[in-house]
Structures are given as C-alpha cells and as structure tokens.
Design a protein around this nucleic acid. Structure first.
Length: 431
RNA sequence: GUGAGAGUAGCUCAGCUGGUUAGAGCACUGGAUUGUGGAUCCAGGGGUCGCGGGUUCGAAUCCCGUCUUUCACCCCA
C-alpha cells in the first residue's frame, strides 16, 4: 500500500535539500554578520501560548494535540511566543539589547496555495530592549542585507514601511473613535488589493462622514513621510510618529539601503500586537505575497507575563522567497551542485582491494571519495565518476603494480599526472 | 471553511465524439566500449490510467463520491 505525503508538506530530495540549505545558510550567515545570536525552542508548546497572542480563532489554524497527561499542546505555528517566554524566564540575567535569531520549522493547518504550505521554515530575528527607531531600521536593514546577497536588487524588491503609531495618531486626529480602529485596520490593509471603487464603498460603510473618509483615502495614497502634514492636522501624536519614521528612513539611508525603501501607509499588517513601525518586503511586480514582514511590538513580553520591554522583529518564510529567487534565475545559478572530490577507479582487475584502501585513506584525511561497486571496466567507472560530478579520478593501473604510482585524472580538463602513492596521500593532509 | 481547474511510467505529457495487447520524450539500467568519462547509437525494465462505486456488450475516456494537487477567496502569526 502506497502512502502519499501529507497535504501541504514537502519531501526534500538531495537537489531540493541543497536549495534549502543554501537559503538557510544565507539567513544564518547574515544574522551573525549583523550581530544576532541563534536560539531555538521546542517544536510544541502549550496551546494556550498561541491563544494569548492571537485569540481563539487561531486554534483552527494550527495543529494541536493532547498528550497522555491531558495537556493541550500545539505544534508551533510561529516562534515569537516561544521567544517571549524564553526572554521572560531570564529577563533579569540577559544583557541588553537582546539580538537573537532563529530558523524554526513551523506548521500551520491552513489550506495550501502558492507560497504557502503547511510546513515551512521561517527566519526570525528580533531586537529586544531598545525602543529607538534605529532598532527598527536595523531589523529592516538585516532583512534587506540578506535579500541583496542573493542578487535581488532594488529593481526587484521594495521594503514598504509605515507605522501603526502614525496610523492611530492620524485616525485620532481625524476624529475617528479608537474602538473602530481594529475593523478599519483590516480594511486599510486590503486597500491595494481591492478595486478603488470597492474600497471607497467599504470605507464609506465604516466612515459615513465623507470628509473623514476622503481624508483617510488621501492619507493612504501618500508616497512620502514629508507629505503627511499636508493632509492631516499634525498634532503632537502625529508629529511624534512622523519624527520616528523619519529617523527610521534616515538610519536606512546611512546603512546604504534607501534605494530599497519606500513609505507606504497601506502597510498595516493583520496582527493586533504591532505598536509602532511596521514593514513588509514585496516583489516589485507584486504577483507574490509578501516575502517577509515585521515591526515593533512593545507590549508582547508584558502580555506574556513579563515586564514591559520594547521589541521589534521580523519573520521571513522560505516558500515565497524560493519562488521569487527561482523566477529571477538566482537559484540554479548559485546553489552549489553536488561535488565529489575523488573517485577511485581501477584499471587492473587484480587490484580492486587497493581501491577500497585508497578510498578509505582519502576519506580519513577529510576528503570525499567514492568508488564503483560494479567492478566493471574503466570506461564504466569513469562514466560513474562523471555522473557523480567527481573533480578528480584516482586510477589504479599497471603503474601502481610496478612503481606504486597512481594516475590522477582531472575530470574537467582531462589532464592526467602520475603521482607516487605516498606523496599523493601526504598532499591530502590538512596544512 | 467556500469556489474553480487538474490527476495516464520517476518527470513532462499524447491517447479523437467510449472500441483489440495504453504510447512518446527525458530519466534509469544494460550493451556497442576489459586502460579513459559527460556525446552518439541500440536494447531493456518500469503503469491495478489517483482510489471507490455506477452507466455500458465494452470505460484511461461518460456519471457520482472520495483523496491529492494547482489557483483564488477567508485568514495570514
């Protein structure tokens, strides 16, 4: 009986595995370069942890289970609650700022579609304990720093940046009641996805005052931070939010990525916990969902029972990223292919045992080596070596029988040299 | 959870309005080639046509259900 793979999961055959490793290695390398330390937690947690942050509806979107002690658990759909828990546990002992990253494997019980599966990897990093806008800028910078190392340019992707604090201040300045914010956020977040007329209709339903509605629309259409004051009465709260955003953009300019960054008031993000700067990075064509997203969440640690400590961070999944990199031709050209350093072959049928010995000697010196199990002719062995992408072939021939000399064949150029066995092995030793 | 398309060899697909024994390319294995590889040529293996039921003398083909998959919606941590 054939058992199919589970819905929304992927099998990583060697060729897919090299791609996955290349992406994750890139994430980790950039994290370390930007001063982050790696952490990880368990792949399941108490179900309650996710309900605290996201409410009861979330239970349907995750894989939950009960252990034999009757504990309600869930496979992690995100790692931020784990991070909050871990930080809270040792909050007084940890030096600030806390700059940590992780690449957790996550599961969500959603219906799979393009760029979204039920099991995936997500790069997360956060700066905890710093409330200055430069920390938000560093989060955005680090995301872009990775993406540009893959070869994506500012013509391919843009970081769209806004601020929850700004949006709230603007809505308040326009006379909108705070109780309306959450439903309004959901609508504003969809603005660019809806036809303009549909958006206007839905907005009118929520904001009957046409003057208020048109000023909201005007704000949402802005393209730079400088224009804000021309549309909205800049009271103190709005002014503060503008100052913060300007500081973020100024820092991004100093870090050299301003080409990638734009102000976009349409970036709201679904999650209620964001409190300040929010951002998403999108492909310029706009056919894919967001490559990554993040922002400031100053209340989360307190919500998880800890002290009020400011935090900002981001998450980037592997699915959309891989689609984009593939479409841009940046995967096949950069992901390392299989490579075998040595393939040991024999030309003298009496020396098959020597083949095993030499392969073992090469391996024990830290180099990769294979040989053929088929014991066929040299032609066959070389063919097998070629299919394994061997760099060099070591051929045991009559010269070995006579003088202990090996033929070393460079598979790329076809050149061959005769080398004494002892010398060959000593040159394999690490310096 | 809602809606639409798809499912034939490992992969990409052909197979007409139902009609003998289900095909191709690529991949894989072997041979041409017992001291020289990626090319070429030849041969071979591999399919309960996703699964279950129905209609029919006869189903890969038509109908229903189901599973998987793709895309969109809801949601998006």
């Amino acid at each position: 009986m054939k058992i199919p793979p589970v819905k929304g999961t992927r099998d990583f055959y060697p060729s897919e595995m090299t791609r996955r490793n290349w992406i994750i290695d890139g994430w980790k390398k950039v994290s370390v370069c930007n001063g982050f330390e790696e952490y990880d937690g368990p792949i399941f947690e108490y179900l309650k942890m996710y309900q605290i942050k996201s409410g009861d509806e979330i239970v349907e979107q995750l894989f939950s289970l009960q252990d034999r002690g009757g504990r309600d658990l869930a496979i992690r759909p995100e790692i931020t609650p784990t991070l909050a828990r871990m930080v809270n546990q040792q909050v007084n002992a940890l030096p600030r700022p806390i700059k940590w990253f992780s690449v957790p494997r996550l599961c969500r019980a959603e219906r799979p579609q393009k760029g979204r599966l039920r099991e995936f990897f997500q790069w997360n990093f956060d700066i905890i304990g710093i409330d200055s806008p430069e920390a938000d800028a560093e989060i955005i910078f680090t995301s872009l720093d990775y993406l540009r190392t893959t070869g994506l340019t500012s013509a391919d992707i843009k970081a769209k940046i806004s601020s929850r604090k700004l949006l709230a201040a603007v809505l308040t300045a326009l006379g909108i009641a705070a109780e309306q914010f959450d439903t309004l956020y959901a609508l504003l977040d969809k603005r660019t996805k809806l036809p303009p007329e549909t958006f206007a209709e839905l907005l009118a339903e929520q904001i009957p005052d046409s003057q208020q509605a048109s000023r909201i629309s005007a704000f949402m259409a802005l393209e730079s931070v400088e224009q804000i004051e021309s549309v909205v009465p800049a009271d103190e709260a709005v002014q503060n939010a503008i100052t913060e955003l300007k500081a973020v953009f100024a820092a991004l300019k100093l870090m050299g990525v301003s080409d990638y960054c734009v102000f976009d008031p349409g970036i709201v993000r679904g999650l209620a916990y964001y409190t300040g700067v929010v951002f998403e990075i999108h492909d310029v064509v706009g056919q894919l969902r967001a490559i990554c997203g993040g922002g400031r969440y100053d209340n989360l640690l307190r919500d998880f029972g800890g002290p009020a400590i400011p935090a900002t961070g981001m998450g980037m999944g592997d699915c959309v990223l891989e689609i984009l990199l593939h479409e841009k031709g940046l995967l096949d050209s950069q992901v390392p292919r299989r490579y075998l350093e040595y393939f040991v072959a024999f030309a003298v049928p009496t020396h098959t045992r020597t083949m095993y010995e030499i392969a073992a000697q090469i391996r024990s010196r830290g180099h990769s080596a294979n040989f053929s199990y088929k014991l066929g002719g040299l032609s066959k062995q070389l063919k097998e070596a070629a299919s394994q992408k061997a760099g060099k072939c070591v051929i045991i021939g009559q010269e070995y029988v006579d003088k202990q000399e090996l033929v070393i064949k460079d598979m790329a150029t076809g050149e061959q040299v005769l080398v004494d066995l002892g010398r060959f092995l000593s040159e394999l030793e690490p310096d």
